[in-house]
């Protein structure tokens, strides 16, 4: 059983690693499909929490989430196997290009394929907002907060780490005020 899930972890993250173009966010619909919908390794909300954690840690989000999810499912072995799965495709592809295909980006077919992949990456990230956001946005206050953080990052160019830190702070303040209210209600 355990070996079985190690293999599943390896091939799942191999698949994710091989199809991740355009940086971390574009692969979120792919990771979510595999990790949440297909294997139920994480719930909707846990998935967002994993993203919050792996974004706050140095390194690529794809690799970080592979390590985190692998650890959660199968401990240290799971973490290392998932990490290898996520990293191997780019390692092998880049090595082949570096050795044989120095002019890879100048091929007409490659450029043509990329004229289609680039807009698809934009669509993947837009879809990620809806897919990852749906469980969170059920609460109205969360929707308003997400809009606020969107303005902070997109309009005011606030660094991702600062956006995440202020999110954590907002959560703490909300909780503090709630517990205070409950305490006051108890003492009355």
């Amino acid at each position: 059983m355990k070996n079985n899930s190690l293999l599943q972890l390896f091939f799942t993250f191999l698949k994710i690693g091989a199809t991740t173009f355009g940086g971390g966010y574009a692969m979120l619909p792919i990771i979510k499909r595999e990790v949440v919908e297909k294997f139920s390794w994480l719930s909707d909300e846990e998935f967002v929490d994993v993203l919050a954690v792996t974004q706050s840690i140095p390194g690529a989000v794809a690799v970080n989430s592979a390590i985190f999810i692998g650890y959660k499912i199968c401990g240290l072995a799971g973490a290392i196997i998932s990490m290898l799965g996520a990293v191997l495709p780019s390692f092998i592809v880049i090595l082949i290009i570096a050795i044989f295909l120095a002019r890879f980006t100048e091929y007409k077919l490659v450029q043509a394929a990329f004229s289609g992949i680039r807009p698809a990456i934009a669509a993947l990230i837009a879809a990620a907002v809806l897919k990852v956001g749906k469980p969170v946005m059920k609460e109205r206050l969360n929707l308003m907060l997400a809009l606020l953080f969107l303005v902070l990052s997109a309009v005011l160019n606030m660094h991702a780490i600062l956006v995440i830190l202020s999110g954590g702070l907002v959560g703490l303040i909300r909780h503090y005020r709630q517990t205070k209210k409950e305490c006051e209600a108890d003492t009355e």
Binding site: V48, A122, V132, L143, A154, G168, G171, H175, Y176
Partner: peptide, 30 residues
């Protein structure tokens, strides 16, 4: 509960960041 409180605030922040990236990449690739 305090860790859960932090996460309840992190969730909308993560969504806001992804939405920001979506706007940025839409402007540069379309």
């Amino acid at each position: 509960t305090w860790v859960q409180a932090v996460f309840s605030g992190l969730r909308p922040a993560v969504i806001g960041l992804i939405a920001g990236a979506a706007i940025f990449i839409t402007r540069t690739t379309l």
